[in-house]
């Protein structure tokens, strides 16, 4: 016997379409909100991922290039003139901050050496912090999405299953046709949550690692540069 024959006439046969779109439109409003939210989160995550990938790799490349120039034997004043007042990457920003402080202490013809070393180091520390902060910007979003998206999806799933059980209770029919759509849309929410969360977590870890490497590089450079400056100061004395 065809199981469809057993369906009471009031119950529509299973929805002919079970595509993403039809699943979405059949879903309960809460599930819809969850799905939309997860979709937006995924878009935002990927925007951050793209942006961070480019900016971090760019920062790394430029830092390497700058280090080459720095150790190439050019005079620091020349380098400073080349870079100008608008450093376009973090290591240059570090260098410019230190050089500016150095220049400022020579203003007025007299060299104020007392505390110069300390001041330069402070300035470079501040520069490093600023740079890392700007590089870390929005990285927390990835962590948040990675941690919460599965739960949000799970919430949508639970809600969808709840409504499908309500459908069972209302129609007093345990036929799969009554249960299946609700469960399908519910599982769809979880799937979306995972789709959003997995890349977020992966790239968050990757960016974290990249950032720590970059900040170590900056600190090393800052130490080296302050060593050079302190040598200069001693020579002038």
């Amino acid at each position: 016997m065809n199981p469809l024959d057993l369906l009471p006439t009031g119950v529509a046969p299973p929805a002919s379409e079970l595509s993403f779109i039809s699943l979405f439109w059949q879903a309960h409003i809460v599930v819809k909100a969850v799905i939309v939210g997860l979709f937006l989160a995924s878009v935002w995550c990927w925007a951050i991922i793209l942006e961070k990938t480019f900016s971090l790799s760019r920062a790394w490349r430029r830092a390497e290039k700058f280090e080459q120039q720095f150790w190439s034997g050019k005079s620091l004043d020349e380098l400073y003139a080349n870079i100008g007042h608008r450093p376009n990457h973090s290591m240059a920003a570090l260098f410019v901050a230190a050089m500016r402080e150095w220049r400022r202490s020579q203003e007025g013809g007299e060299l104020r050496i007392g505390g110069l070393q300390l001041r330069v180091e402070k300035v470079m520390d501040v520069a490093i912090q600023k740079e890392t902060m700007s590089l870390e910007k929005r990285l927390l979003v990835l962590a948040t999405v990675g941690a919460t998206a599965p739960f949000i999806g799970l919430f949508g799933t639970v809600w969808g299953i709840m409504s499908s059980f309500q459908a069972i209770a209302v129609s007093k029919n345990t036929n799969l046709a009554v249960v299946a759509p609700g469960i399908a849309e519910a599982l769809f929410a979880t799937a979306l949550g995972l789709v959003a969360a997995i890349p977020a977590v992966i790239f968050y870890n990757k960016f974290n690692n990249d950032l720590s490497r970059l900040s170590i590089k900056l600190e090393t450079f800052a130490d080296e540069f302050s060593a050079i400056l302190s040598r200069q100061i001693d020579e002038r004395n």
């Binding site: 379409e17 079970l18 595509s19 993403f20 779109i21 039809s22 979709f39 995924s42 878009v43 935002w44 995550c45 990927w46 925007a47 951050i48 991922i49 793209l50 942006e51 480019f54």
Partner: peptide, 25 residues
């Protein structure tokens, strides 16, 4: 940021469309 946001959105729409075409139902 705007650029990457736009590309991200475009990518998602493309994935959705591809999903709808490749997995119609």
């Amino acid at each position: 940021m705007k650029k990457s946001l736009a590309t991200s959105f475009l990518l998602h729409v493309m994935v959705l469309l591809a999903g709808m075409i490749v997995l119609p139902s």
